[in-house]
């Protein structure tokens, strides 16, 4: 009897440790992904150096997690929040209209109506024109990318992602 007692304690302790590991390592099945993990946004310009008086392109890429979507720029329902790219005012830079990708019309199990959405990887383009009168030097083009993500069961809170694109302005001869 005296020999079996430590083994029983050891087995019990081992069991408790294994149970604790199981409870802490495996997340609950109902856990939803975090909003910020759903869409990965990157922003860059077509040129790092731009001559005054010349144009350049700004490209925003949004990588949407598989199984999720965001509303297009022109949702089919008036209450849905569109995907929008906005630029902050930058002295010496004029921004042209924003070119959004062609949306997909998708049917989801919760609705009899199609929704206009983006999924996968999308790119949004805009043109910037540097003023002739701007002096040489470093500037920052900044803005906000706003989206609202859902999957086929639920929606996540609207999200705004700020971006900064450094540019070197070179005075044209």
């Amino acid at each position: 009897m005296a020999v079996t007692k430590p083994i029983t304690r050891f087995t019990l302790f081992g069991g408790v440790v294994v149970l604790l590991l199981c409870l802490s390592v495996f997340p609950s099945s109902g856990q939803a992904p975090k909003n910020k993990d759903l869409v990965h946004v990157e922003a860059y310009a077509s040129h790092k150096r731009v001559n005054s008086g010349k144009s350049f392109h700004i490209i925003i890429t949004a990588n949407i997690k598989q199984g999720f979507h965001i509303n297009s720029h022109k949702p089919l329902d008036e209450f849905l929040l569109p995907t929008v790219l906005r630029f902050n005012e930058t002295k010496g830079i004029a921004f042209g209209s924003v070119c959004y990708p062609k949306p997909k019309q998708v049917l989801f199990p919760f609705s009899p109506n199609h929704l206009s959405v983006y999924d996968g990887k999308i790119s949004i383009f805009a043109e910037g024109k540097v003023s002739r009168n701007i002096s040489s030097g470093d500037i920052n083009v900044s803005g906000i990318f706003t989206y609202q993500a859902c999957n086929d069961q639920m929606c996540f809170m609207p999200e705004s992602v700020g971006f900064d694109i450094p540019l070197k302005i070179v005075k044209a001869d």
């Binding site: 329902d77 209450f79 989801f108 919760f110 929606c155």
Partner: peptide
């Protein structure tokens, strides 16, 4: 719910 949430609106 929210007016901008399609599954909310549908339910």
């Amino acid at each position: 719910w929210a007016s901008w949430c399609s599954p909310c609106v549908e339910e």
